[in-house]
Design a protein around this nucleic acid. Structure first.
Lengths: 355, 355
DNA sequence: TAGATTTATGCAATCGCTTGCAAGCGCTGT
DNA sequence: ACAGCGCTTGCAAGCGATTGCATAAATCTA
């Protein structure tokens, strides 16, 4: 395809000669080298490891680069180096502001170092996660970041056979695939239950959404029940729904819970959105919060601190996770010996008016 | 592949010879070719244009591919073809659920066709947008998707000089860089004002956040004022704040507006989050919604349909935009003659209890 | 049945950069 | 004066695919 679209005069000086088969039209490293009077290897080094090149040449090269407006071809570089500065990140959802904050923070830390996040959305499906992983690996990424500790066998297999740094985020536990950065969801559930008891609530319950796919939410529920049992109560009250957590389903879930167990006086929600829906339901039917019913959630979403009443919740280290993942990986690229660590960033109880 | 980490037997037959300098350890196209008894060009064609290859060979190739678990090296392919199946998408924010929904939809449409979205977060900065564009272009993407119609000169320059399909989303207008898919924010503002008047409100106002950077929100405000003036009112009431829209700032903004203009009886918010904050403020100080004060927002966020009272809002075609962008681009890859269109997806007034 | 087309393959030349290796250079110590 | 050392630099061989062109085989005229 020569004629119309592109032009491609990347030849040495005469552009009458046989045109190259393809061309990007942009200046390339050899142009920079020519202009600076050095070889391409030196240009490459000036870019990759600046202090391996003398000040004199580095100056000439830099000048040539911005004279030409040279932008390296990352794809060519990636092929030659057989790895790209891509970080494959797989999250279960984008709509969920938890992960959005984590990704923003991660990206903010990676971008200045020249690493590009490649985002994948598994939709809480482990199958899809495995597929995404495969397609990410074909980019020869510098690292892979997965959400949670639960993966398909083939995911694990691929990941170990590919010898690429992997970090699991947003959840920690005993075993570790490689590196885990997050917090214990079980501890979150326990914290919620203990807090409700501390606020003198007697019959406390758990409302969870989409627990079959959102295993971290399920863990929070399990931690909650552990604490209930540890307190000597044996009636484990809960209402769970198959739908994804949202304000919409929160109200109905609360209504259903109260219908089944009218004496409940405190509720822990697997997610703040559910709790907000429940708060609206309380306003609708005239339940006093927190006097009649105490509410505590998870996530510390935007609205929780500013609703009427304000909502108690447990705040996960959303951006901290992203930042820490980036930090860890960056350190590891510099020194591959690192890795295999588990970092617990903990969670914070935000006590507000609803409890 | 067998031997543990890397091994690299991509030689012709004897692997005792000097090992290659580097190797990925994964099987490559030549392995597939060898096993299927064809040349690599045939394998490549079987992958790229299946019906250019005979059924017999295609069968053998497919078998070889999944026998070896071959995954093509996208980077090598990208270099050879001088373009990758990457779509560079730049949005102003990820936390904002508007764009998250658009991206999810776009990704869902692109992924099955083998295109990978590369996401960039400009943080509402045009400078950063331009930088991101540069770094995306060095990936030789198949297309670039930008948010909005407002860009730096150098962004435009780069984009035209690179001869890559570009679509601007979430906003349309008269001029078009290449293709625009979205809706008119001015029309949204007008719709809001007209609706408030239709509900018999007399003194209506606009509350906007971060209008200097969020030019689409500003447009919505401008459309609102247009309609106010068209209705013969000349006191254009508004309160704007520099912070980004959030539930937090919505309450304070409403309080400030009412302090300055106590007679206001209807408010249009540049964003639903602001409106929710204002609703909480109303609950706090005992303002009756909609009797004393009507509220209408923009975005139709998760909570708007389920709050107490439910909130009127104007719903943008969030996922529709993503889907349409993907559709357009996919069609265009097949037939490069397309392009230069503007698609207005419109917005929908969701009338609820707050007006 | 020979000649003209139309497929279906393979050959080999790239795509634009990275990097192992070796050569060049200016010093130092003896 | 020269071997030895460290630091820069260039040479050239890849990295693993894609694809223009040529060729072989199959199909279609006349």
């Amino acid at each position: 395809m020569q004629a119309l679209p592109k032009k491609a005069q990347n030849g040495t000086q005469e552009d009458h000669a046989a045109l190259p088969r393809r061309a990007t039209g942009r200046p390339q490293m050899s142009d920079v080298a020519l202009l600076a009077g050095v070889s391409t290897s030196t240009v490459s080094r000036a870019l990759r490891m600046p202090d391996a090149v003398s000040d004199l040449l580095r100056g000439r090269i830099d000048a040539a680069i911005d004279h030409l407006g040279y932008v390296p071809n990352i794809v060519a570089g990636g092929l030659a180096a057989s790895r790209t500065r891509v970080i494959g990140v797989i999250v279960p959802s984008l709509n969920n502001s938890f992960f959005a904050a984590t990704i923003e923070a991660m990206d903010a830390a990676f971008a200045p170092k020249g690493y590009q996040i490649m985002l994948g959305n598994s939709g809480y499906s482990l199958e899809r996660e495995a597929d995404l992983l495969d397609s990410f690996l074909s980019w020869s990424p510098s690292a892979i970041v997965l959400t949670g500790r639960n993966h398909l066998r083939r995911t694990l297999k691929r990941v170990v056979s590919c010898d690429v740094p992997v970090v699991e985020m947003w959840e920690i536990g005993d075993h570790t695939l490689d590196t885990a950065i997050g917090f214990s969801h079980r501890a979150v559930g326990e914290m919620a239950a203990k807090h409700l008891y501390a606020r003198n609530k007697q019959r406390i319950a758990f409302i969870g959404a989409a627990l079959t796919s959102d295993l971290r939410a399920k863990e929070r529920g399990a931690g909650f029940f552990d604490a209930v049992r540890a307190a000597g109560r044996h009636d484990v009250l809960s209402h769970t729904i198959p739908e994804r957590a949202s304000v919409e389903v929160g109200g109905a879930a609360l209504a259903a819970l109260l219908e089944a167990h009218p004496s409940v006086d405190g509720v822990f929600f697997s997610n703040d959105a559910l709790m907000l829906g429940a708060l609206f339901e309380c306003q609708r039917v005239g339940i006093k919060v927190p006097e009649q019913l105490a509410l505590i959630g998870f996530g510390d979403m935007d609205f929780s601190a500013w609703s009427t009443p304000t909502l108690s919740t447990i705040r996960p280290p959303r951006s901290e996770i992203g930042l820490e993942v980036a930090r860890h990986l960056l350190a590891r690229f510099a020194d591959p010996a690192l890795g295999g660590t588990t970092i617990d960033l903990g969670c914070q109880l935000m006590q507000r008016q609803s409890t």
